[in-house]
Design a protein around this nucleic acid. Sequence first.
DNA 1: AATGAATGAGAATTCATTCAT
DNA 2: AATGAATGAATTCTCATTCAT
Lengths: 194, 194, 194, 194
Amino acid sequence: MAKPKIDRRTLLKNSLSVFKSKGYTATSMSDLANASGLLKGSMYHYIDSKEQLMLEVLNSLMDHYINKVFITAYDEELSPYDRLFLLSKKAEEIYIYEDAGNFFANIGLETKNLNLGFEKVIQEFFEKWIATVEYIYTYVVSEEDAHVKAESVVAQIEGAVLLMKVMDDAGHLRRVLAGILVEYKELEKENSVK
Amino acid sequence: MAKPKIDRRTLLKNSLSVFKSKGYTATSMSDLANASGLLKGSMYHYIDSKEQLMLEVLNSLMDHYINKVFITAYDEELSPYDRLFLLSKKAEEIYIYEDAGNFFANIGLETKNLNLGFEKVIQEFFEKWIATVEYIYTYVVSEEDAHVKAESVVAQIEGAVLLMKVMDDAGHLRRVLAGILVEYKELEKENSVK
Amino acid sequence: MAKPKIDRRTLLKNSLSVFKSKGYTATSMSDLANASGLLKGSMYHYIDSKEQLMLEVLNSLMDHYINKVFITAYDEELSPYDRLFLLSKKAEEIYIYEDAGNFFANIGLETKNLNLGFEKVIQEFFEKWIATVEYIYTYVVSEEDAHVKAESVVAQIEGAVLLMKVMDDAGHLRRVLAGILVEYKELEKENSVK
Amino acid sequence: MAKPKIDRRTLLKNSLSVFKSKGYTATSMSDLANASGLLKGSMYHYIDSKEQLMLEVLNSLMDHYINKVFITAYDEELSPYDRLFLLSKKAEEIYIYEDAGNFFANIGLETKNLNLGFEKVIQEFFEKWIATVEYIYTYVVSEEDAHVKAESVVAQIEGAVLLMKVMDDAGHLRRVLAGILVEYKELEKENSVK
DNA sequence: AATGAATGAGAATTCATTCAT
DNA sequence: AATGAATGAATTCTCATTCAT
């Protein structure tokens, strides 16, 4: 029994899925091991501790967002609106279909006062996300307004996702995403007029 | 050895404060007992279980919101705008100064898949909150729009609070609250014009 | 089941006996609990950790030596020789019949590089022991010589105990103790002659 | 993948060094593997078990003492005193500079009641050591006295080493070794007179 | 041989809960 | 009621050992 039962990526994916469902504290090493068909003890071949595993999960998830999602914002072959549109589609997928809730937000809230060292990655994720949205808004408003706008967009989505999770109703998130797109179109018009 | 060391209200207040800081799972009965100057074992004179204690905390907190906060919306002696203004002031206090984060949202997210039976109270809290805001909006928009608007306002605040907690920056929440008031004023004008 | 199954002194005594037999590292919390008729988990009512338990055991054992054994050296009602004689009898009991090996030495050696914080108490024990023997020797030799002599006596006894344990033969320790007494008598004579 | 990373002698030397520092129980197979630049699993190409490894370490260390240290006692080209002098120099080196504590004594004490099967080698070591010293004393005292003397010398050295380790002071060991030499000289004189 | 992983027992410790005093 | 202890399951993590590649 020498060959790895599982590759690191799969391990991280499985762990993410357990953490998503039960949060950090309520997830036990047993849960994580089970999710990957390993024994508790075998987990420690792959990781140093539960804490470090979560950190790696957060980091790899952030990489995914940066390289697969946020990158859309910088695709100069597309119009700014189309980029925002694609981002919103991806957001819908992520939040509604992948049930990713918002993992970063959830874990951030749960572990804020637990001194587990996740804060840095989580803040970074939000900074990156805001920067992404901000970039698209620089096409239609001033740099300064773009930042405020981006923060507002991110907050609105987060709020909508939260409401969706807690109220078990995805309608609101869809409306929020639609609203953001409509408003962007208007900003584009105002901008072109000037 | 007969007299209670602590009254129920204080016990609930103390427990809330611990739960706020550490969440549900990471809070131990010892933590809760300590917070009230009791020993672990003595807690069971007041409560049946940790789960039931949290439920009671959630319920009493909801009562507080209904009777002390949301009630403002129905105070016919004040103009609708003033009611919204007061609500927003209270929100600021609650979120920024009391560091209540948003307890309902946090606990809801953390325990969503843990089958602890908190979902009902938490949903109810959000329904009540939305209904409250909705009521104020019925003065300036249609019933239907008022509901959508209320959901949006609540989501925006939740999102802003989340961002505030995770990013350690209260600025955004203040802007959101201010924005909501400004927009309401405009809706009032539009409405009166018609 | 509320009344203590065991008083602290007995717990310490039982723990000492397990530690004596297996050393620090090889002794498990289960071993310690069993020795006192407790469950593993119940041990933590009495102690904070295995490390702290050992520290308490060492401290209480040192107290015992100071108050019950070393004190003999300062009993002015007895002649210095008689004090040394009594000490040697007690040493024989301790080492041969109580199988205390030399607990301080054993634990000291075993844990020297393990950074467990036992070094201070252990050093203190040996300092106290040497000081005790030294005091008796001040009656028959100079202060300076008394210290060297005391160190030598303690070392000889320790060495003999060690040999006894490792070789399963108590004869040598008896000879060493006897030799020490004989030599003291001679020193007394020399001293009175002068 | 065929050539050994390490020769057996080096492996034993490295293992000895770890065992010296942490003792038997507290040393893990990982520690031992690391010390030789191997992975835990690779250790089992060289050894059967941790227990057997320690046994081999003890045996090879004893061989070393017999062939490199104790042998001096039988070198008929030197005067008995010079042999004792050389032995004492070697002892000083071993104990003070090599920090070998006394490995046999330490391991013997630590594992006495652990039924690991080290007792035989350890006893043998001490028997050989005593026999060695005894042989030198037969030049100056009767056979019987030589044995008692040898035991006493070994015990004194062991005791001094122990004190040195526990008290972090090498002075006493040096005095003990010097004292042994002085006394031997005197015995030589007494003996030649008769 | 060396490796990297798996194994399963066992380590120390914490936990929610119960209960006699 | 309050306490202090007991309980036993569960927690994170480590260990010696085995084994397929």
